[in-house]
Amino acid sequence: MSTLLGHYNYWIVIVLMMTGFYTVIARPNLVKKIIGLFIFQTSVFILFISMAKVEGGTAPIIEEGYSLYSNPLPHVLILTAIVVGLATTALGLALVVRIQEAYGTTNEDDIHVQDETD
């Protein structure tokens, strides 16, 4: 029971991660793949932030009357990771747009067929 209560958060996050992972490897559409990557990425963020949580703690902004704070370090890492994630997602989407322009499709299977016939 204590294992369940202590770990359910991580387990659900892993299910979310695998949802994203499945979208990346099983769906042929490139935009969908990037969305899958985005879900995977957000789930990793949730995993990190879950680890930073201290039971009974509060947000790490120092204020009189509080002594227990959650861990600020993962917050910093994830804060910057979110912005970097956006930048890399945008780069991926830009590549998808160029692929669409070059091949006329964003479906992976069609792209493979075109590559083979060339």
Partner: peptide, 30 residues
Amino acid sequence: LDAVDVALTEAAIGAGISTILLLATVALTT
């Protein structure tokens, strides 16, 4: 989970800008 800074960033980026970029990409593809 007490990560207010992260929440602010995620709301602005994930729910805001990312959506617009994805919409723009969908408009350019299928």
